[in-house]
């Protein structure tokens, strides 16, 4: 093998093994850092793992937002109109958070309650997170929702 070919072969081998290692590490990092999405119904049925970081999406149920008068603690229900999940959170809620609005919360289940580390509401009023749309569709309440919103 002439030196030039040998060099090229070595470079390609280096590239392939480098990429292989990188992809392997990336897949490992992915498996450690993905958050599964659950609907309130799935949680009520106990399908969601506890103590693992997950996401839950739905609507903030009317009349369920309770604030602690001393601190930034807040609790509210997220619903897909079949089941509700009680969510507790401490911190500042996003501007578009309100009752009847779609949200996605990220956190862990702790003794029957969902302790959120993050609450996401989207920046466009008409925009519904795809996960929430899906959750509402599964519970068969999407049409009812859409009819009510317009």
């Amino acid at each position: 093998m002439n030196p030039k070919r040998k060099q090229r072969l070595l470079i390609i081998l280096g590239l392939v093994s480098g990429l292989g290692i990188a992809v392997g590490l990336v897949m490992y990092a992915l498996s450690q850092n993905i958050n599964l999405f659950f609907t309130p119904t799935q949680i009520a049925k106990g399908e969601a793992p506890s103590a693992q970081m997950i996401r839950v999406g739905g609507m903030v149920a009317d009349g369920t937002v309770d604030r602690d008068p001393q601190s930034l603690k807040v609790a509210f229900d997220v619903t897909d109109f079949d089941h509700n999940v009680r969510v507790t959170y401490e911190g500042i809620l996003p501007d578009l958070f309100r009752e009847g609005q779609g949200v996605v919360v990220q956190g862990r289940i702790h003794s029957g309650q969902f302790v959120a580390s993050e609450v996401l509401a989207k920046h466009d009023e008409n925009y519904m997170p795809p996960e929430v749309t899906e959750a509402l569709r599964q519970s068969g309440k999407l049409d009812q929702m859409m009819g009510g919103q317009k």
Partner: peptide, 28 residues
């Protein structure tokens, strides 16, 4: 570039093969 692409499209890929809804967060 490939790893950012993979992390960004991963939720789509998982959803496409029926693996449910997932999200890939900043820690990844």
């Amino acid at each position: 570039a490939v790893s950012v692409l993979l992390g960004t499209l991963y939720p789509l890929l998982v959803d496409a093969v029926g693996g449910g809804k997932v999200s890939v967060g900043p820690p990844f």
